[in-house]
């Protein structure tokens, strides 16, 4: 190797890195910072109009509401970075909330049992999705749209028009949803813990990086010997399990559960993830961004209530936000491509 080592670098120009590398880094950080900025502006403006918005109760409500959505967004991120999607999470949350509620009603079962059962049911649903997508090669959109309806139907069949009443649910479980640790409610603590764990896994572990590799270029991942099927299966398993956990927390928070309570949430989750900067075509994005996206969407819901705007507007606002986020992405991508194109020419 010495012969090579002695060769002088032939193109020292390539190392303009810092300036442009810094720019690229900034562009990639742009999303998280952008959401944070939007969040701050939103809160500031709303508080200026109605100071009670930032009351302890108001803030706690937002965090409680955002927790479950953020949990789902974290799971969804795992799936979306591999260039797939999981639309069944809303149905899974509903099924788990109902079935776990049914199982613990009138018993003295504890938190551990409820969480274990919920996660197990969710993981089972995720396993079905994952097997169909990774082994059978059916497009994820179709598979999870199918399981969305199947699980929904199952939930209605099991519920049979009944509902779970909070009075029947053991206190220990309800306490999980409404209690706190040193003043901080359990729910956001759980979500943050999960977010940090998954975020660290995706960033710092070799198998975590493979999720991004698969989404960035499936063909290159195949040629690099990345175990694509196993990773995609894992992503669905995790998304299902987290949806199961979210279902249990739903039960713990509300106590009273009707059949299919989280109907339509899958779209909120996907919106949160995309707004949070996870590219819908995979390869890019973090769970932190996704969780921030969930917080932003939830906050908008509360803001509309505080500002006494017809709640029907909420969906329109979320939709607008989504379009804005995607347009911003597109603009940034074009800008970036231009910068890189020019740089290429300079370096020949």
């Amino acid at each position: 190797m010495t012969a090579v080592a002695r060769q002088r670098p032939t193109r020292p120009t390539a190392k303009t890195g810092r300036g442009e590398g810094g720019l690229i880094d900034l562009v990639l950080r742009f999303r998280e910072l952008g959401i944070l900025g939007a969040l701050i502006v939103l809160v500031a403006v709303t508080t200026a109009i109605n100071p009670r918005f930032l009351s302890a109760q108001g803030v706690e409500d937002i965090f409680l509401n955002a927790s479950i959505l953020a949990l789902l967004a974290v799971g969804q991120t795992l799936v979306v970075v591999t260039r797939n999607i999981d639309l069944s999470v809303g149905s899974v949350v509903g099924l788990v909330a109902f079935v776990v509620g049914d199982a613990v009603s009138g018993t003295q079962h504890g938190v551990l049992f409820a969480v274990a059962l919920g996660v197990a049911i969710g993981a089972a649903c995720g396993l079905v999705n994952g097997l169909l997508v990774s082994l059978c090669g059916v497009p994820a959109l179709v598979v999870t749209l199918g399981t969305l309806y199947v699980i929904q139907g199952l939930n209605h069949y099991i519920a049979h028009g009944e509902q779970i009443s909070a009075a029947e649910v053991p206190d220990a479980i309800l306490k999980l949803g409404n209690g706190d640790l040193a003043g901080v409610p359990y729910l956001p603590l759980i979500s943050v813990a999960v977010m940090l764990a998954v975020g660290c896994y995706l960033r710092s572990y070799p198998s975590g990086r493979e999720f991004y590799a698969i989404g960035s270029s499936p063909e290159a991942a195949r040629l690099a010997g990345v175990p694509i099927r196993r990773r995609v299966l894992t992503a669905y398993l995790a998304s299902g399990a987290l949806a199961g956990l979210a279902g249990t927390l739903w039960l713990a928070r509300f106590g009273t559960v009707v059949a299919d309570p989280a109907r339509g949430w899958e779209l909120d989750v996907v919106a949160a993830v995309v707004v949070g900067g996870v590219a819908i075509v995979g390869g890019v994005g973090t769970v932190y961004g996704a969780a921030l996206g969930a917080l932003l969407i939830t906050t908008i819901g509360s803001v509309l209530v505080v500002l006494k705007i017809n709640p029907f507007w909420q969906e329109a606002v979320v939709g607008l936000l989504l379009l804005l986020a995607i347009s911003a992405d597109r603009l940034v991508a074009l800008r970036l491509a231009r910068v890189l194109r020019k740089r290429n020419v300079r370096h020949g």
């Binding site: 660290c200 990086r209 493979e210 590799a213 290159a220 991942a221």
Partner: peptide, 29 residues
């Protein structure tokens, strides 16, 4: 390969070491 097969969204270093990244004692990259 004739057409380079890289992961466009990942860093150059990650492209080189995908699956064989140097690890710390905790198993992190």
């Amino acid at each position: 390969y004739q057409e380079p097969t890289l992961f466009p969204d990942l860093s150059v270093a990650e492209n080189i070491f995908m699956g064989r990244q140097p690890r710390t004692s905790l198993g992190r990259i």
